[in-house]
Design a binder for these strands. Structure first.
Length: 587
RNA sequence: GCCCCCGUAGCUCAAUGGAUAGAGCACCGGACUUCUAAUCCGACGGUUGUGCGUUCGAAUCGCACCGGGGGCGCCA
């Protein structure tokens, strides 16, 4: 926002240092002055002083930095761009006129509206693959992180200026599917899925595992069925297609509820054949070793790279019986993505346990000469566990189903809205409950660093107090409530006619940071920065709301504050949107 | 044996190598005749796991160690 002023100051600093024979560092690091109610940009002279010290002079670096800062500040004192200049502890702080800064920030939001915070187009196309559910299985809270994190990353990267292709890759083949089919054919033949399709699919899978555990002799029946599948027995393929669709329809409902959508769906099954083809080529090129029938087809990556220490190890790319593995399919999937779309980057939102796997697959592709392999990126995140660090497993039923979580959260939110706002119409209460319930579920998954394990706890998941989505949504509601009474008057941004209250200054400060936060979140692939911004915005607004009357203020102050409320509401709405959380008008 | 991640207030977590390490929860004490109290204000709370190093400056970077979790040939 202050590029030109910064550049001017930097030139003057250069002049001063040159004139006085002081060494000039390669680049000055500019930042914001730690905010204490006044805006400014800041740089320091530690590096300059350190350069002097290294050139042989006997210097105490912090003292010398302060000395330079003081001299430079004297030089800049009268500069018209800055309202105040100071030297503190080796830092040079250049302040701006508060009123003018405020006007500028609000003007920008009022002009850009939904686009406030948006980055310039990057001219890069990025595919983000996320969610990856397995058909014929339950969809539980453990699966939620990839879906919610991936969705938000897509929103953030899109907003930051990337062209984003949203992809899903579902697991529709494998042993788990065969077990499901076996149980269905033997004990549920002809049944149709009820309303709650995904739960029912999950139940049949869990039941299959239970039956096999109780009676291991039945394993032979499953193996027999697997063989029929491998031979593409029409009866089995038919059943597979139908039942697979049931799962996909169930997922579609779930994604609708979560407001998550995809541009492209990839299936495990469609990568199987192309994967086997690619392995064939790898063998022909001497990259993969075919040790069948005794052993599998493998790639000794470390040996190919001449690495002494084990790093990529050995990747098995095909089973000894010639059937495809996850790795086989991933070779093909990576290629399909770059063929289907001309990608600058291909991001995989997958949990941390598959880190080595991806490194192996992509390194193998690199060795095979696919130049795009280097543009694959693993956005790895930690698991969602149950208390006591128990991993959710659909096989032994230690799961919290997504449907149950949504239902509980919505019911709890309905209770609160009945209590807080009983006069709302029934339908409105329902809408609020859904919005608040879903927000409360999403927020904690986005507010943790990707590398941190999330422990799912019913009590915490249903706690709407404190640093949580409802707090932010409530700030939005309050802003909306003021504006509803302001008779739709939307004044232009003006220089405030009064001395700004700390709460106002603080709120404006938070709003002004949003564009930078978006860029950073996109580059680091961290939704955490946006949840922080959203929360801080809401906090600043709530303080403002308490301390600064808007509608009852004197006319000119009122006019300014209404414009500030419009800007704040917009900023909050924009951050919530990046998180995939709805901003309700009332609650 | 090799590799990855985590360790910050009682608990859950923040903090582009930068100025006095911050929030929420919990506990204690306050504020609704007011634009929605799903809110706000105050108090309490720290040897950033330990040691050494790099740096003008380290919670942040490097090395070693301690504690916890995860991954390492035909699961996904």
């Amino acid at each position: 926002m202050f590029q030109s002023e910064q550049k001017e100051a930097e030139e003057l600093i250069h002049h001063y240092l040159e004139e006085n024979g002081i060494p000039i560092p390669e680049a000055f690091q500019w930042g914001n002055v730690p905010f204490k109610g006044e805006w400014g940009i800041s740089t320091s002279f530690f590096e300059t002083a350190a350069l002097e010290a290294r050139s042989g002079k006997q210097i105490n670096v912090p003292e010398r930095a302060q000395e330079i800062a003081q001299d430079v500040s004297a030089r800049l004192e009268k500069h018209r761009s800055f309202s105040r200049v100071e030297a503190v502890k080796g830092y040079l702080n250049l302040y701006f006129a508060t009123g003018e800064f405020s006007r500028k920030v609000i003007a920008q939001v009022l002009e850009q509206r939904r686009d406030f915070g948006k980055g310039d187009p990057k001219g890069e196309r990025v595919m983000v693959e996320f969610s990856q559910p397995n058909t014929h299985k339950a969809f539980h809270v453990g699966h939620l992180r990839s879906a919610i994190l991936g969705d938000s990353i897509c929103r953030i990267m899109d907003f930051a200026g990337y062209e984003v292709v949203r992809a899903n890759y579902f697991g529709d083949i494998g042993l788990h599917v065969i077990k499901w089919l076996w149980n269905y054919m033997k004990y549920h033949a002809g049944e149709e899925p009820p309303q709650d399709t995904t739960r029912w699919m999950g139940d049949i899978y869990a039941e299959a595992n239970q039956r096999l555990e109780e009676n291991p002799d039945l394993e032979s029946e499953v193996r027999e069925l697997y063989a029929r599948w491998d031979a593409r027995d029409p009866e089995i393929v038919d059943l597979w297609q139908n039942t697979r669709q049931w799962s996909l329809d169930g997922f579609e409902d779930m994604y609708d509820t979560l407001n998550i959508h995809f541009d492209h769906l990839y299936a495990n099954s469609q990568a199987e054949k192309p994967g086997q083809e690619m392995v064939k080529e790898l063998i022909e090129e001497g990259i993969a070793e075919d040790l069948r029938p005794e052993d599998a087809v493998i790639v000794r990556i470390d040996e190919l790279l001449g690495l002494e220490k084990e790093q990529y190890r050995v990747l098995v790319v095909l089973r000894s019986d010639g059937t495809a593995l996850y790795a086989t399919e991933d070779l093909a999937l990576a290629k399909m993505k770059f063929t289907d779309y001309d990608l600058n980057k291909s991001i995989y939102v997958v949990d941390v346990r598959q880190q080595l796997h991806f490194q192996q697959v992509w390194k193998t592709l690199e060795i095979a000469g696919y130049e795009w392999a280097k543009r694959c990126e693993h956005l790895s995140y930690e698991l969602v566990n149950l208390p006591g660090n128990v991993v959710m497993a659909s096989r032994d039923g230690t799961v919290v189903l997504l449907e149950d979580l949504i239902r509980e959260a919505t019911a709890r939110a309905l209770e609160v809205v009945e209590e807080k706002n009983p006069s709302l119409r029934k339908q409105e209460k329902q809408n609020v409950a859904k919005t608040v319930g879903l927000g409360a579920i999403k927020y904690p998954l986005l507010a943790r660093d990707n590398t941190k394990i999330v422990t799912f706890d019913w009590e915490k998941a249903l706690d709407f107090n404190g640093q949580a989505a409802p707090y932010i949504q409530y700030a939005h509601v309050r802003a909306n409530s003021i504006l509803r009474r302001a008779w739709g008057l939307l004044p232009k941004a003006v220089t405030p006619p009064h001395e700004l209250e700390p709460a106002e200054i603080n709120l404006i400060e938070r709003i002004s940071q949003l564009p930078d936060d978006v860029g950073r979140a996109a580059e680091e692939r961290k939704t955490l920065h946006i949840t922080n911004t959203a929360y801080e915005l809401a906090r600043a607004f709530n303080k403002f709301y308490k301390q600064c009357p808007v509608l009852d203020a004197p006319p000119r102050v009122r006019k300014f504050r209404i414009s500030l409320v419009v800007a704040a509401r917009q900023a909050i709405a924009n951050t919530l949107n990046l998180l995939g959380i709805e901003a309700p008008p009332v609650m």
